[in-house]
Each structure stands twice: as structure tokens, then as C-alpha cells.
């Protein structure tokens, strides 16, 4: 983790914000614009979907207008083959080698399929992609993805869209400790304090979609997340006090008057 709140480096590229925005669930291009403004995000995900001649252009145009880089994802893919083809389509369409790799096991949990994920990551790294895999909160798998050549790892806090927060903070801390590529907490975040915790646990960044886009006031929530990520990052660097089982007076005992 570098000592600079203003950004972190993925595959040699400096991202000016540690908050990555997921655009899923956004209600309109105007709301997306407002969210991008108040989040300060410099990178935002998009999905690859069939062209709808009636509605095309919206998301990409807004991202470009705000100078935000596009991170295509492979959401909806269940096999390595589907994910690899989706990444190649994204590279062709958006002229980026970056891909947020998602290969899910089933529609109910949307949890990553570790076997297909690793297979897809190997293929895409071999093809020269900058691969950011959405992965389980498994320190061993995270290391395997790093060894495969992934540029970052993106462990989940909880299932996508669940808002349950970070269910296994110990594992997230272990992943952050043991990986030398940036660790970006992805999925499960419910509110700003979850993002702060992710940063306190040692993550280099946080990716948030639903918790912002489906909140009552998305632009306001985006601002809250921006502050939360910064607070967590600063607290991590400042160093938290150890936990104790008993109290420790913060006022001095010396000079206590005899009353």
C-alpha cells in the first residue's frame, strides 16, 4: 500500500481515487453524472450487453464526459469461455485491456466459481489483459490469482447487492497482508462505514455500486463514500490502538483531588 491518499497504482497506472464506482443500478445518465462528480471516482465499471438501438450511448458518454476510465466487467458469465469472449468483446468495443473478471457459480448467490475464475484469469493474463478478478474472500485463492498475473484482486465482503458488509474481516485483512498487488474490496458493502472498515483492514481501494446507486440520494451517498474511504485510509496509516478487555483511564490519576 503506498502512502498517498490521492491514488494507487494498478498495472503501472495511477488511479486518482481509491473509490471505484460500479454503475449497476443507476437510474439515469443525469444521476450517474452527479454520482461521478461527488464520488471523485476515476474508474467505473460497465457491463457488456446487446445493443439496444433505442437506448445506446448513455453510460459511455457520461463516463467520457467526466473523464472517468471504463472498467468493463464480465458480469453474467458462468464459464471461463464466456468470460474470455466477453473480455475480448469489451477490449474491442471500449479500447481497453482492463477487465473486471467475474465468473459466477449460480444466480442465487452470485458467488464466484473459483475453478472457472482461475481458468479465465490464466487465459486473459496470457492474452495481455489487465485482469482484476472478483473473488471469494479466500486468502489462498487470492494468492493464486496474483501468481497467475492478475493486476489486483477484488475479494467480496458479502454477496453482490446484499448490503451485508464485510462478513469475514479477518480474511480480508489476511488477503491485504499477503498480496503484493492492490486489494480492492468488492461487493456486499451496505453503507459508508463498511468502506471505512475495508480501508482500515488494509485494502488499497473499495468498489461500490448498489450501496450508492440504489440509495435514496445517490449523489449524497457517493460523497459519503468518498469521505469514508479517505477516513479509513488515514486511520489505517495513523495506526489504531490495540483492543483491551478492561478500561484504561484517559484522564491522569496523578493530582486527583481528595474530595
Amino acid at each position: 500500500m503506498n502512502d498517498d491518499m490521492t491514488g494507487f497504482v494498478v498495472a503501472g497506472t495511477t488511479l486518482s481515487s481509491r473509490l471505484i464506482l460500479g454503475t449497476g443500478g443507476i437510474s439515469s445518465p443525469d444521476v450517474l453524472g452527479a454520482v461521478l462528480e461527488s464520488s471523485g471516482a476515476s474508474l467505473a465499471t460497465v457491463a457488456v450487453r446487446r445493443v439496444d438501438p433505442a437506448t445506446r450511448g448513455g453510460v459511455l458518454d457520461v463516463l467520457h464526459a467526466h473523464g472517468v476510465a471504463v472498467l468493463p466487467n464480465t458480469a453474467g458469465c458462468f464459464t471461463a469461455a464466456e468470460a474470455v469472449l466477453t473480455a475480448k468483446l469489451a477490449r474491442e468495443a471500449f479500447e481497453t485491456d482492463w477487465v473486471k473478471l467475474e465468473v459466477i457459480g449460480d444466480e442465487e448467490t452470485l458467488l464466484p466459481d473459483a475453478v472457472e475464475l482461475l481458468d479465465a484469469a490464466e487465459q486473459l493474463c496470457d492474452e495481455g489483459f489487465v485482469v482484476l478478478p472478483y473473488t471469494n474472500d479466500d486468502p489462498v485463492l487470492a494468492r493464486r490469482l496474483e501468481q497467475t498475473g492478475c493486476a489486483a484482486v477484488m475479494p467480496l465482503g458479502a454477496p453482490i447487492g446484499s448490503g451485508l458488509g464485510i462478513r469475514n474481516p479477518h480474511n480480508i485483512a489476511l488477503i491485504a497482508q499477503r498480496c503484493s498487488v492492490p486489494v480492492v474490496l468488492d461487493a456486499g458493502i451496505g453503507t459508508a462505514s463498511d468502506a471505512t472498515l475495508a480501508m482500515e483492514l488494509g485494502c488499497a481501494g473499495v468498489m461500490v455500486a448498489t450501496a450508492i446507486t440504489r440509495s435514496r440520494q445517490p449523489a449524497r451517498m457517493a460523497g459519503a463514500f468518498r469521505a469514508a474511504v479517505e477516513a479509513g485510509y488515514e486511520a489505517r496509516l495513523a495506526g489504531r490502538i490495540p483492543r483491551r478487555f478492561s478500561a484504561r483511564a484517559s484522564s491522569p490519576v496523578e493530582g486527583l483531588p481528595d474530595l
Binding site: 460500479g22 454503475t23 449497476g24 443500478g25 443507476i26 450517474l32 465499471t45 460497465v46 457491463a47 457488456v48 450487453r49 446487446r50 445493443v51 445506446r56 448513455g58 453510460v59 459511455l60 471504463v70 472498467l71 468493463p72 466487467n73 458480469a75 468483446l89 468495443a93 471500449f94 473486471k100 467475474e102 455500486a209
Partner: peptide, 10 residues
């Protein structure tokens, strides 16, 4: 043939 583009997602 599949013709694809970006949609809000992720």
C-alpha cells in the same frame, strides 16, 4: 451474431 456495447452494470 452478437452486437454489444456498454450498459450500466457491476
Amino acid at each position: 451474431v452478437e452486437i454489444v456495447t456498454a450498459a450500466a452494470g457491476g
